[in-house]
Every structure is written in C-alpha cells, then in structure tokens.
Design a protein around this nucleic acid. Structure first.
Lengths: 160, 160
DNA sequence: CACAGATGTTCTGTTCTACAGACGTTCTGT
DNA sequence: ACAGAACGTCTGTAGAACAGAACATCTGTG
C-alpha cells in the first residue's frame, strides 16, 4: 500500500503503539500504565534481586523506576524491602493485594493482546510470538554488550 | 528464563527499543532521528497528500510533525509547498539533497536492521518481517476505528 | 581494622515528546 | 453569503528519558 509497509521499523512502531494504547486502556488506573503491569508481573513471578535488575529487564531508567515504584507502593501493590544480603539494594515484592490485582490484570491484558493480534490467524499469532520471544531474549542478552560493541560504530559509519 | 520471556508486550518493547537505539545511531545527526528517516522515506516515495496524512501514517502527533518538518526543512532535506487543490494543506516533498541523503540512510538502516535481527536465522527473519508487515497493515487500517470501537470498552471492563 | 573505590538508590535539573486547546486560514455545503 | 469543518501552527502542561550529584552501603587491599 505504501512505501513503508515493508519497513521493519515502521511495522514495529505501528504494532508497538497499538499494543501500548490497548494495554493502557486495559490496565485502567494502574499506576505506571503498561509498565506498572510488567513491574507487577516481575515482582510476583521473577523475584527480582534488585531495582536495577528490574530496570535492565524492563528497559526502564533507574530514576524512572524510583517513582514508578513509589506509585505502586503507595497503591499497596508492591513493597520495597532492604535485601538481607546487601542493604544497599531493595527487594521488590508484590503484596497480597498486588497478586490479586495481577490475576485480574492478566485477564484484561490477554484481551488487549488478542485485540492487537486480531489481524493474524491463530497459527500466525503463535509463530509471531515465538519469533519475537526468541529475538527478544537474544537482544536483551546482547544489549549490555552493544554499548561497547564495534557493530554500532560500523552502523554509525555506514561503511563496515 | 524469566516470567516475561513469553509476554508479548515485553518482547515487543525489548525489540522496539533495540531498534530505536540502533536506528538513532545509524541516522547520525539527521533531524528527527529515526522518525526523520521515516518522514524522508514517505516524502520521497509516497507523495503524502498532506501533513496530517503523514501524521496518521507514521503515528506522529500533528504538533510534533510541525517542528520535525521545520527541522528537516531547515536542513534542506524536504520542502513544504501549498497543495494546488487545497491551499490549507501542505505537500511535503523531498529535495534533491533529501533524496541523496535517503539513499545513504537506506544503507545505514539496513545495517541497523540486520544488527537487531541478528538473533534469528535468515528464514526466520523473513518470516518475522512478513508477519509484522501483515499485522501492521491491519492494525494501521483498523486504528481509526478503534477509538469508537466496542472492543476497547470490553477490554477496559475486563469482562466481555 | 582502616580506607579507597565501586555499587545501589534517590534527588535535581534539563531536554524531548505527547497531548489538549486556541487561533488563523481555507474549504465545503446550504 | 454564511455557518461549520478541516488543516496547520502556536501555546501551555504533563510525562518520561537522561546526565549528574549526593548518600548509604559493600568490597578489596594493606
């Protein structure tokens, strides 16, 4: 249809915006919007060992994480506890209220996700999610390396 | 690995951030970063009939588009011309400089894209791009409807 | 143990972007 | 001719990213 239909960045942006919009509707008044949901998920099921680990996992700046957690804590959904092993770090754990809220949010988010993916057949949806997951795990693992990586300089130069 | 590895929103966010980061490195000092590239692409190959059409296509707010185009125009990459048929609207056309710059940017962006997709095999990359394109075209077409759509209310209610 | 350096979190300030609203210009339908 | 709508711009507000400083705490070395 347009010149951008096959552009990887354009397609990614369109889908990401659609997802964020649908998700922010789905979570309602949850502090932090769609990121609040991800924080709650990680706090409930991943037992993050520190706030900074959470930041790296979710791609959120540490100064932003501070006030996102402030809001979630004010809503009694998570608590910050000093880690026994290292009192500099804070363990982020979901409260009972938070876990109950997450169960409800999971249902809503599944609907939002289905809405975004509605343009694909079920087997295509599964294939897309599988490919995205594989790529994301790889990209997330590679990310810390990227900053010092020669590849980015090649990209910047445009002439490898 | 983590509870979010299979979360559609998390994978999408990780990949989108990786793409934006790689792309913003690749375009260098281009005004508007990765969005400047998309505007330049659309202006060169799509002949957008108005700024607002461009906004809808790229998912950019109209007030943001104003100063993005200001910057691109200041860099002599595009020009705004009043449309002959409707003098309210502005035709956004790429200059000769802009088209030349775009040819160079295409090479750099291809490298950035390859870098982001490096975690997948070639046939998987093709499959992913195909699925994303199909879904994005659908989502983009459905987007204007969404605002008034019953689906979003169902999502918000959480109980269809 | 003492101490220098590193790390985790928070706070401050700046910048960029999104978004809502008002305005002037131009078009459309009656 | 006129009311209403659409397009682009400008203004102001809020959210978020980002860099840097400050504080508490840990680690390694002597």
């Amino acid at each position: 249809m347009t010149a951008l239909d096959d552009d990887f960045g354009w397609t990614l942006g369109v889908i990401f915006r659609a997802y964020v919009k649908a998700t922010n509707v789905a979570v309602g008044d949850l502090p932090g919007g769609h990121r609040g949901y991800q924080i709650l998920t990680a706090a409930t099921r991943d037992q993050p060992e520190s706030q900074s680990a959470l930041c790296q996992q979710l791609g959120i700046d540490r100064t932003v994480m501070t006030y996102l957690l402030d809001d979630l804590e004010r809503a009694s959904l998570v608590t910050r506890r000093p880690a026994p092993a290292d009192r500099r770090t804070r363990l982020v754990v979901a409260t009972e209220t938070g876990r109950a809220r997450l169960a409800d949010l999971d249902r809503r988010l599944a609907m939002a996700e289905a809405h975004v993916l509605a343009g694909l057949a079920p087997d295509e949806q599964a294939a897309l999610k599988s490919l995205l997951s594989k790529l994301a795990v790889h990209a997330n693992a590679a990310d810390p390396v990227d900053n010092a990586c020669q590849a980015l300089q090649d990209i910047a130069a445009g002439t490898p």
